[in-house]
Write a protein that binds this DNA or RNA. Structure first.
Lengths: 323, 323
DNA sequence: CGGAGTTTTGAGACTGGTCAAAGCATGTGG
DNA sequence: CCACATGCTTTGACCAGTCTCAAAACTCCG
């Protein structure tokens, strides 16, 4: 680890203290476990080693700082717009975001939800233009990494190059998962997978995985999942009745994780129907468990172990509340 | 252009001549315009400048050859498997391919169809593992680019780095388009968009855009589009009846391109219903025409002009048949 | 307390899926 | 060269899941 690695609690503190608008200062306040979030914010960042400049140990040469400044956003504020020149990439320090595309005939599709530790705008560096709109779902803060810095640094540092390639490829993997979800899953499965996916990512971000806030509206969830908001609402209600989830407005709690997970491959009594002809539901010719679930792959093992440990250990839901 | 740029007609000729199995030697025979295909194969390749090594003019240093060898595949042969170590990336010289992912519970999703000029396996370089299975839909041939070569060369050549980033980002853009298709479009729109997309790409690949072979089965089209094969078949039949397409088995002809295109935003008399609430169908707040249609962006202008010229000029369908 | 936006819930319509059977195309073997 | 087998495609009838429209309930905020 280099001395200056970007993780500096004091640099983070102002975000907690400031906030002229008390009502909207929810970027961290609403995260059930602010201390944990604070602790891990820079630790999750892919560029933490080089963000503020460091004497890079792999190339034996000095690298200039990646991050030029930080930017804070209010809820509903747009970070960047599709089609605009991509002059920077962003690493999320705080807050939740969505990215959307807009078709020629005005149809909007949410392509993803992002949280602290995620990168925004990386998909624009290839063409030099942003492909999405990025909008804050809550108050948030991002580290601004100018593309010029990034491209230069990619050339200088093999580690950084690997990071960027990795992030891009992971993104593609996540998109593949989304395509599978949209193309092959019924509504209930999609919602279940969505909640599980959120839970997984929140866990990596070190907040409680079973009890969190949905930063997006039903309409946004539905848009992302290819469903209408009413359908999402109905499924939430149904899973609530079944005791699998506890949904109260924008707050959700996973009460039976296994049941939730089992919804995905086994849509109730439809199972016996599933031996259909055609492409779907092959009896898994080779035991390929690696793909299509999310974007984990190399860290998957470690994360999975962490998750299992935490989930098993957590008989109560008050896991992170100690801090 | 460097002297050795990989485009060498004599190197390509063997593929045309060989073929112990007369019946399956259809990689090029079935393309309506073999001469055009041959002409453009290497010209479309993103690595044509450096594939065989060249004194790169942007870095003023000698670059080692990218492509180590070529590999020929029979129909239904697997180029690489998901989860396997990604030791190479492939540039398609001939033939058509599909990439698929397999979920943990055995559901398969086709993530894309590839044709000459496209890259395969690039999404694996980040994690070092392939994320998809890649399978040949026809006899084909690929240039094998070992990852080691590629990663080394990315570091040496800024142009190549840009190419790779560009290809990855374009891939992401295409995936976004697919998500929009799967999440927001009805069956007829999906099929129409699929045919148009194929046509566009075949045109870039310099084969007739209006009259081509569908290399994939109905089941594969349906899987890709999130529909069942019967639905695809029904829609083909319907568009055939309407005189928009002429579909005979695996051969398709676009008879009314404008009508086909107009199907996408305006699903018949549903238009007036479309003033729905929620996220969909905003009246296009900003005229953003850049996204979500396909992967073109920088070359879009040129390609578009070409396309329009060719499409307008082509009163008959026998465009490329001169060669 | 009132208003705007979000969520829930219901009733009915319709798209697309499911199952089934017949029609075709392609390749194989006699 | 033809008959047959296999796999793909087409078409029909029926049904289920999801969408649409509508209205009431709720939440958040001024």
């Amino acid at each position: 680890m280099s001395v200056v690695n970007g993780f500096n609690p004091s640099a983070y503190a102002p975000l907690l203290r400031t906030g002229r608008r008390v009502s909207n200062e929810n970027a961290l306040r609403d995260v059930p476990c602010p201390a944990a979030a604070q602790r891990s914010t820079c630790g999750l960042c892919k560029f933490r080693e080089t963000c503020l400049g460091s004497s890079s140990h792999d190339d034996n040469q000095f690298t200039k700082p990646l991050v030029s400044y930080r930017r804070r956003l209010k809820k509903d504020e747009t970070l960047y717009r599709s089609g605009a020149k991509c002059d920077a990439v962003y690493s999320i320090r705080a807050g939740f975001f969505k990215t959307t595309i807009l078709s020629e005939d005005g149809i909007q599709q949410i392509t993803g939800f992002q949280m602290p530790g995620d990168l925004l705008g990386l998909d624009g560096i290839g063409a030099g233009k942003n492909r999405c709109d990025a909008v804050a779902l809550s108050q948030g803060e991002v580290c601004v990494i100018p593309c010029a810095n990034l491209v230069r640094s990619i050339h200088d540092s093999e580690a950084l190059q690997a990071h960027v390639l990795r992030a891009l490829c992971d993104d593609i993997g996540v998109n593949y998962g989304a395509m599978l979800l949209l193309g092959n899953r019924r509504a209930e499965e999609r919602v279940a997978a969505f909640v599980i996916g959120l839970s997984d990512r929140l866990l990596a971000f070190c907040t409680p995985w079973s009890d969190f806030r949905l930063w997006m509206t039903r309409a946004e969830i539905g848009n992302f999942l290819g469903l209408k908001l009413e359908t999402v609402s109905r499924i939430f209600s149904k899973l609530d009745e079944q005791g699998i989830l506890a949904v109260r407005g924008s707050h959700i709690r996973i009460r039976d994780f296994d049941a939730l997970r089992s919804l995905i491959g086994n849509p109730e009594e439809k199972v016996r129907r599933r031996r259909s002809r055609g492409l779907a539901a092959l009896p898994s010719p080779l035991p390929n468990l690696a793909v299509a679930s999310a974007g984990h792959e190399a860290d998957a093992a470690r994360q999975l172990v962490d998750r299992i440990i935490e989930r098993v250990a957590a008989t109560s839901d008050e896991v992170c509340a100690i801090s």
